[in-house]
Design a protein around this nucleic acid. Structure first.
Lengths: 217, 217
DNA sequence: TAGCCCATGTAATTGGTTACATGATTGA
DNA sequence: TCAATCATGTAACCAATTACATGGGCTA
C-alpha cells in the first residue's frame, strides 16, 4: 500500500483529476478548467473554487511545481507542471479501486412517486430525459470519430475512447429505457380506462396504512 | 408556476423524498431511513443527519404533521403524516423538470488517465465494476419479479417497476461496455507487443507540451 | 449482562458551487 | 469605448456524511 495515500481519507479525486491533466502537459488553473470541460466534462467537473486552492495544496505537498509563466504579452498565467512525486502519486491512485457513491437521481425519484401525479407529467419528464440522451449520443459519436483519427498515434487515445464508449453505451441504454417507459405510461392509461368502465368491480387497492405494513421492497 | 416552490432554490429533493414516502403511509424518521434503503436505495440516499432536521422543517412549514405515536411497549416513535399542503407540494414538484447534475465518476477518471499506469490496473478496475453490475442485475431481476407479483394491485407498482427497469437497462449496458473495454485492453497489449518488436520504426507519439497545443476534445 | 435493534437528535467537518472582487488585454 | 476573454483568487453558503451522545427494550 502506498503510504502517500494514507492521508487521503475523504478526498474524492479532485487532486488526481488535476494531476492527470497536468500529466498531458503543464498548464494554468484557468486552462485546467477549460480542458476539464472539453475532455472529462461528461463525467467529472471542477470549479475554480476547487481548482485554485487545490493547486496551492499540491504545490505545498510537492506534487506540482510552477514552471515558466506563459506570458505572450498579456498578464502571465501561472503554469503548473507535474513533479516526479506527483506522477508517482497518480500511478498509486490508479491502483486503488474506484468506489461508487449512491447517485441522487432526481428523475427516478419523481418517477417512483409518479402515482401522485399524472401520466402526462411522467411522460414529459421521460421525454426530456430522452432528448438529452439523444443529443448526448450524437455528440459522443462525433467526438469518438474525431479523436480516433486526430489522436491516432497518441498512446492515451484508447483510454479516452473507453470513457466515450461508456457514454455511448449508457445513452443507448437510456434511449431504450425511455421508449419502454413511455409505453408503460400508455399501459397505465389503458389500464385506468378499463377500470373506470367497470367501476364497482375492482377499485385500486391501497397500501396498508397501519404499522404492520409490508415493506415496499 | 407554483409559488410554494419559489423559495426552493438550492434544494435537491431531500424534502420531496421524505414527503413521497410519507404518502405511502405515515411513519417515523427511523422507519423512513429503513424504507429509503429498501425502496429507492439504488438511486437515492438520505442519512439521519438529513432526515430528522428536514422533518422538523417540514412540520414547521405545515407539509407534515405528527400523528399517533407508535408505542407497542417500547419507546414510542414520532410518527409523521403528510398534510394536504404536503401532498400539493409533492404534486407541484412532479411538474418541475428533473435536472441532471454532472456525476463524478471515479472509474472513468481513472480510465481516462489509464495510460499513466498498466493495462492490468485498468482491467482490474473494470472487472470490479463488472462484478458489481452483475450482482446488481441479479438483484434487480429478482426484485422486479417479486414486486410485480406482490404489489399487483397497488396503483404505484408500475412506477416502481420503471425505476427498477432503469437499473436493469443500465447494468446490462454496463456489462456489455465492460466486456468491450476488457477487449480494448487486450488490443492495447497486442499493439504494444507489435511496437516493441519493430522498436526503431515508430515510437509512440507524445502530445505537444508547448502552449500552442491541441485540445483533447 | 452484554450486545443488538429501536429511536432521536446535535455537532463537526467536508466537499463543492456560486457569488464576489479585481484587473489586464483584445477586438468589434 | 464597451464587451468578451484571460486570469486568479476569496468568502459565503449549502448539502451531506460521519461522529457523537443518549437511552429503552429484547434476547441469547
Amino acid at each position: 500500500m502506498h503510504s502517500s495515500h494514507a492521508e487521503d481519507k475523504g478526498r474524492t479525486g479532485t487532486a488526481e483529476a488535476l494531476l492527470g491533466l497536468l500529466s498531458i502537459h503543464p498548464m494554468s488553473g484557468y486552462e485546467l478548467r477549460q480542458l476539464i470541460e472539453e475532455s472529462i466534462g461528461n463525467f467529472w467537473n471542477e470549479s475554480y473554487g476547487q481548482i485554485y486552492p487545490t493547486l496551492k495544496r499540491l504545490e505545498r505537498n510537492g506534487l506540482v511545481r510552477m514552471g515558466e509563466p506563459s506570458g505572450k504579452g498579456r498578464r502571465p498565467a501561472k503554469v503548473y507542471e507535474l513533479t516526479e512525486k506527483g506522477r508517482e502519486h497518480l500511478q498509486g491512485w490508479l491502483e486503488i479501486p474506484a468506489q461508487r457513491r449512491v447517485p441522487r437521481n432526481e428523475l427516478l425519484l419523481k418517477l417512483f412517486f409518479g402515482d401522485m401525479g399524472t401520466t402526462a407529467q411522467v411522460r414529459s419528464q421521460v421525454q426530456a430525459f430522452r432528448d438529452l440522451h439523444q443529443r448526448d449520443l450524437k455528440r459522443y459519436e462525433i467526438k469518438a470519430r474525431s479523436i480516433a483519427s486526430e489522436y491516432a498515434n497518441v498512446p492515451a487515445m484508447p483510454y479516452w475512447l473507453m470513457t466515450l464508449n461508456f457514454g455511448r453505451a449508457e445513452s443507448r441504454a437510456m434511449l431504450a429505457w425511455c421508449d419502454e417507459t413511455l409505453q408503460a405510461c400508455d399501459a397505465i392509461d389503458e389500464q385506468r380506462r378499463h377500470q373506470s368502465s367497470g367501476e364497482v368491480a375492482s377499485g385500486p387497492m391501497e397500501l396498508p396504512r397501519n404499522e404492520e405494513h409490508d415493506a415496499v421492497g
